[in-house]
Design a protein around this nucleic acid. Structure first.
Length: 193
DNA sequence: GTAGGGATACACT
DNA sequence: GTGTATCCCTACT
């Protein structure tokens, strides 16, 4: 298992997004380690992308997206959920990839407790669910993803990848910037083609 | 299908 | 400062 280096993230979001599929998002909280294989992501292209939080330029909320690549952009939405993005590109350019779903790998009993759900497919099959399962929140805003306590590594798996439309947004929803592993049971939605 | 929840951004005073 | 429309969603019916 190799931790993804900063150079992995220092590329356009549309290149990083498909390459993140099959990698493993890892989280340490005290002695508790939880992790999951990334099976669904979406690319957001920054100030040129009407669906991006960076569309209207730099604000206090989206500041992390304008920072160096390989850090987490975490935000709170709909009154109860955190979502986690990976900052890509270069400093000053607000590109990011939203992590939308994981297949649980380590610490499954811990995730079941945090989620209050028994079925493994209910633990991290959505952007708000996976942050709850891995206990990711505001304290992880801007966190460096090349080291603990929140990091992404790679074990050589190269899953099949399909590209589809983005989900859950009104503006820019017709852009095919969602990438998913078609065979996974842990996707947030079925793949439409 | 729809209720729920709270932060954010921006238009106004 | 207040008002309010919106939001990269989930859990339940």
């Amino acid at each position: 298992m190799k931790v993804l280096p900063r150079s992995f993230y220092a590329r356009p979001a549309l290149e990083v997004a498909p390459d993140l599929l099959g990698t493993i998002l890892c989280r340490r909280k005290g002695r508790a380690v939880t992790s999951g294989r990334i099976v669904e992501v979406e690319a957001y292209l920054g100030e040129a992308d009407p669906a991006s939080h960076a569309y209207r330029g730099l604000t206090n909320r989206n500041r992390a997206m304008f920072g160096p690549p390989g850090h987490a952009y975490v935000y709170f939405t709909y009154g109860s959920h955190h979502c986690m993005n990976v900052v890509t590109g270069s400093e000053g350019v607000a590109m990011a990839v939203l992590i939308r779903a994981l297949e649980p790998v380590d610490g499954i009993p811990i995730m079941k407790r945090r989620r209050r759900r028994e079925r493994v497919v209910d633990l991290a099959s959505g952007p708000g669910k996976l942050t709850q399962a891995l206990s990711i929140g505001a304290e992880d805003y801007g966190s460096d993803l090349t080291r603990e306590p929140l990091w992404i590594c790679q074990d050589g798996a190269r899953p099949e990848v399909v590209r589809t439309l983005r989900i859950g947004i009104s503006r820019g929803a017709d852009l095919p910037y969602r990438f998913a592993v078609p065979g996974s049971p842990c996707l947030s939605r079925r793949i439409r083609r």
